[in-house]
């Protein structure tokens, strides 16, 4: 039984790592551009187009996105398409584990994952215009109290990158190792 994992580009490394770790040879990965997160309203259409293109080529298609800022529209679209997706609001939540993340109830933390620690400039600093207008930093981040790096892997270079990001944003730094959280468990059931 061949399964397609249609994933956010920000999860590519993690999904491939899980394939390798678990020897999931029945799964294939296709990623949509991670920068769709900068315009989440475009995610449902992009996912639908990719699902429709892949139909007939696989026995099963699984959408490796959480809600990701679509306000329930992605879940509704997946239901229409007859495909399952990851539960939860976003990857920060399912990496930590949806239940644990919700229980923590942190509202003043800005999160980075391995992907975002690696791509901080391309996905946070530049799209927010902070490379050209650093004076906007506190308008964006003034209400946050800390930067939490949710680490999927033990990687000193990434930890340092996340720490530098916290310094750039003027926020205290905290690292939490999450591993792959709910992502591994969800894919493991397919």
């Amino acid at each position: 039984m061949k399964t397609l994992i249609l994933a956010c580009g920000a999860l590519a490394r993690e999904v491939l790592a899980l394939f390798e770790l678990n020897n999931w040879q029945h799964m294939e990965l296709h990623c949509l551009p991670a920068d769709l997160h900068l315009r989440p309203e475009k995610i449902p259409d992009a996912v639908a187009a990719a699902v429709n293109e892949a139909r007939g080529k696989y026995d099963r298609i699984f959408v490796a996105y959480a809600d990701c800022g679509t306000g329930g529209l992605l879940a509704a679209r997946c239901q229409e398409l007859g495909v399952d997706m990851i539960e939860g609001p976003h990857c920060y939540s399912f990496f930590e584990g949806n239940a644990a993340f919700a229980a923590r109830g942190e509202v003043t933390s800005f999160y980075l994952t391995d992907f975002l620690a690696r791509q901080f400039d391309a996905f946070v600093w530049k799209p927010m215009g902070l490379d050209k207008h650093p004076e906007l930093r506190d308008i964006y981040f003034g209400n946050y109290e800390k930067l939490v790096y949710l680490a999927q892997t033990e990687d000193e270079a990434l930890t340092q990158a996340a720490q530098r990001a916290a310094e750039k944003l003027g926020l205290p730094f905290e690292r939490r190792f999450t591993g792959y959280g709910d992502l591994g468990a969800v894919l493991g059931k397919l």
Partner: peptide, 8 residues
């Protein structure tokens, strides 16, 4: 225009 320009 994007958010940074609107903020400025």
């Amino acid at each position: 225009l994007f958010v940074p320009e609107v903020l400025l």
